[in-house]
């Protein structure tokens, strides 16, 4: 089975559509959305509808911190730009959309894999897995062999033997990595809708359960259109500008 992982779409319709079209050109048996469907971008309604459709057809969808804030209107822990975008998003979404987001699970287990937005150590604390020690803390908190998460907006892969500290690896785009052996792995997916690793292309990943290979992918998309809509919605301009540089 080939599973596509999409994380941190953040209301970016152009980026999501480009990734889905890319995924459509290969065999994908299941879609997993790792949270933060909305926030920052100008198309939250479209994204929620689209992901809802996928959910009806068997996709797994995980809750992200921006989804929770957009559903409840509670943006107290957000920085000013995120707050501005989330207040706007909250007003854009109707009650059904808010309810959909609010009822998303914090994490899902799937065979020997764990899907979570931030980390497994304390999913509701929204910790960022930005280094090996934080990855290790997450891996030690689960018995699952492979954790897939997002939240950081920069692709990374960590692995750990039971008696050793975790190690960071920077994955290369398109090279299938066998996540195997007597060790645990934690894969941070890059962001579909707001990459921050200096590469503006949308990021997603595919895992093949038969070969146990994880592939990180990048898809160029129509950034100009996404930017124009952010400007038209009068959202903070920095949310648009950063898309061009992927920062």
């Amino acid at each position: 089975m080939r599973i596509a992982f999409l994380s941190d779409i953040h209301g970016n319709r152009e980026a999501l559509d480009a990734c889905l079209a890319h995924a459509g050109r290969q065999t994908i048996d299941r879609f997993v959305f790792l949270g933060d469907l909305v926030g920052y971008g100008a198309d939250p309604v479209y994204i929620v509808d689209k992901v809802n459709e996928f959910k009806d057809r068997g996709a797994l969808v995980i809750l992200g911190n921006h989804d929770l804030a957009a559903a409840t209107g509670d943006t107290s822990n957000m920085n000013e730009y995120a707050k501005a975008a989330l207040d706007w998003t909250f007003r854009e979404l109707d009650a059904d959309a808010r309810a959909f987001l609010k009822n998303l699970p914090m994490s899902e287990a799937d065979e020997d894999r764990l899907y979570v937005h931030a980390d497994a150590f304390s999913p509701t604390a929204w910790n960022y897995v930005t280094d090996a020690s934080r990855a290790e803390r997450s891996m030690r908190a689960t018995t699952k062999r492979l954790t897939l998460c997002g939240h950081v907006h920069r692709p990374a892969l960590y692995h750990m033997m039971p008696t050793k500290p975790a190690v960071h690896f920077l994955p290369q785009t398109g090279a299938g990595i066998p996540v195997v052996g007597n060790r645990q792995w934690l894969a941070v997916m890059g962001a579909v809708g707001q990459p921050r690793d200096e590469n503006p292309a949308a990021a997603y990943g595919v895992f093949d359960t038969a070969t146990q290979e994880l592939t990180y992918l990048r898809v160029p998309y129509d950034i100009e259109s996404a930017v124009e809509k952010i400007h038209a919605a009068k959202l903070p301009r920095i949310l648009a500008a950063r898309l061009f540089v992927g920062r």
């Binding site: 692995h159 190690v167 060790r183």
Partner: peptide
């Protein structure tokens, strides 16, 4: 060069 180096880590 495109895969994690398990030996280095070990």
């Amino acid at each position: 060069l495109q895969l994690p180096d398990l030996l280095e880590a070990e």
